[in-house]
Design a protein around this nucleic acid. Sequence first.
DNA 1: ATAGGGTTAG
Length: 483
Amino acid sequence: MRVLLVEMDTHTYPFYLKACAKCFDVREGERVHGIVVRNGFEALVFVQNALVHLYSACGMAESGYRLFEEMPERNRVTWNSVINGFAINGRPNEVMTLFREMGFEGVLPDGFTMVSLLTACVELGALALGRRAHVYLLKIGLNKNLHVGNALIDLYAKCGSIGEAHCIFNEIGVRSVVSWTSLIVGLAVNGFGKEALDFFKELEEEGLVPSDITFIGVLYACSHCGMVDEGFAYFKRMKEEYSIVPKIEHYGCLVDLLGRAGFVQEAYEFVQNMALKPNAVVWRTLLGSCMTHGHLALGEVVRARLLQLEPKHSGDYVLLSNLYASEGRWSDVQTVRRNMFQKGLRKSPGHSLVELKNHVHEFLMGDKSHSQRKEIYKMLEDVMKKLKVEGYVPRLSNVLADIEEEEKENTLSYHSEKIAIAFMLINTKPGSPIRVVKNLRVCVDCHLAIKLISKIYDREIIVRDRSRFHHFRDGICSCKDYW
DNA sequence: ATAGGGTTAG
């Protein structure tokens, strides 16, 4: 996009910069930024705000922030633009800090601010913090704001409190398709696929038009519930009834739908024949299915494609290595490991977050840094003892190394989610639910162990992992072991 | 006249 900049005045720049932001054309935006400076308009707050928005919206939150720092005059929009920049670029801690600073400067938050704040809470999985934000915005009457309502649905759903998400949905007077989509996606990631599809049906009965994102939620629900035929039927309806052109994300869902259900060869054929060029995520989905269902030969083929597309993705090395490990091919495991280390790649360390009395505690794998470490490890030993009485046998194939069996067992018992759960068993009242947010996917062994812990200690345990929720209760998980 | 928001496959 490029137009002649004759006759551009101070009123035109914001319009034009907004357009640049909308098509992520940061280069053109920078060019205009230069012109603005040369013409001496850089101190005008409207122009400045448009520039902060441009950088924030194009993934350059830091650049937006640098401008913000230099601004002689700021208003609420300036604050909102820079805060939102951090919110949409995955920097929740900066959002929290700036929100506080905004308050110190006497600038009152509005709906825009609260949406950014809620987005940051979602990112952190900080349910208690999100609830405080909710209470606050009730006080200032912002709960009537549709965008805020939708952000609240997302907050509660993504923090595993689907009942509260439901309440918010019911309280919204006039809902948009986004309200419905947020709830459908929320139900789907929490393992309530059937309910998600019921809501989709209701949405249609209300005469609303689902969006491409609504269909991502629907396809996600199908793939996580093993509804293969239904998924393809929805995909067909999406194209034919709603004239939505499928995006790579939709194809990704279908690959997952097939692969997850064990149709791994079919998934591979689907990838080769689909209308869009498969990206790394699609190939990675397929590699995940190869891993789950033990298709070693195909896994190696898929791995080769991934190496061409994204040679530096450490997660792919881990997946392949686990695939070899599950077949007991330890020398291949070693080769992959060595390969990975030689390229300077490291497995991203697993960590788990839990919220206790307005504080977020973080635990790493094998963490021994916590002030309560003695009690925690004593509790862990107790837990492991009780698990074994219940017939628990550690599943070791997921461990990335061909170390001695005993040592492997040790490594597993110290996975961050187990430590976090032990910490919460010590510090919370019997019977109260335990919520854990994990950065990686929960492994088979932890999944089995947590199921048993939920039964033995009579606790509801809600784990949000990298891709979905697990609600553990009475020894079973909402994912029905299909995740 | 001019600036800002929510839902998105692994």
